[in-house]
């Protein structure tokens, strides 16, 4: 990923910045230019709470380049409390103990780095909500 492309996504990656339709109130993540519900182009910025329920997940055992030392790891879609689905890596967990319906919270984590000399990319990941 190029630096400017990552930089443009920082509000979403770092702070879960979403869009809320001024017309019908639908929340979109990533924020959409046109509301898929009512077609309005008027949006406000909102931040997701970071809490939700695990809707589905898969376990990556053959990882892509740059993730070799993390396998096996889980990728999941979490139904956030605001009603929108968000996909991210699930970390700090026993992948074989995950269950659909688990309560998840987001944590700020490293996602990848561009080699030994490039930038470090940070973003949200999910962790099971165990109160720590």
């Amino acid at each position: 990923m190029q630096v400017p492309k990552f930089w443009r996504e920082i509000p979403r990656y770092y702070r879960l910045e979403a869009g809320k339709c001024d017309q019908c109130g639908k929340i979109t993540f990533p924020s959409r230019l046109v509301c898929p519900e009512c077609g309005s182009r008027e949006h406000s910025k909102v931040h997701l709470s970071g809490r939700g329920t695990l809707k589905t997940f898969t376990i990556i055992r053959i990882p892509p380049d740059g993730f070799g030392d993390q396998a096996p790891y889980a990728i999941g879609i979490v139904q956030m409390d605001e009603g929108v689905g968000v996909m991210a890596q699930i970390t700090d967990c026993d992948v074989d103990a995950l269950s659909i319906g688990d309560t998840m919270i987001t944590k700020f984590r490293r996602v990848r780095e561009e080699g030994k000399t490039g930038i470090i990319m940070y973003a949200y990941k999910f962790v099971p909500d165990v109160g720590v």
Partner: peptide
């Protein structure tokens, strides 16, 4: 620290 934790991530999560 987990492989995806560093001083920046720990700082952010503590500050939140």
């Amino acid at each position: 620290p987990a492989p995806d934790e560093d001083t920046a991530t720990l700082s952010v999560n503590a500050a939140r």
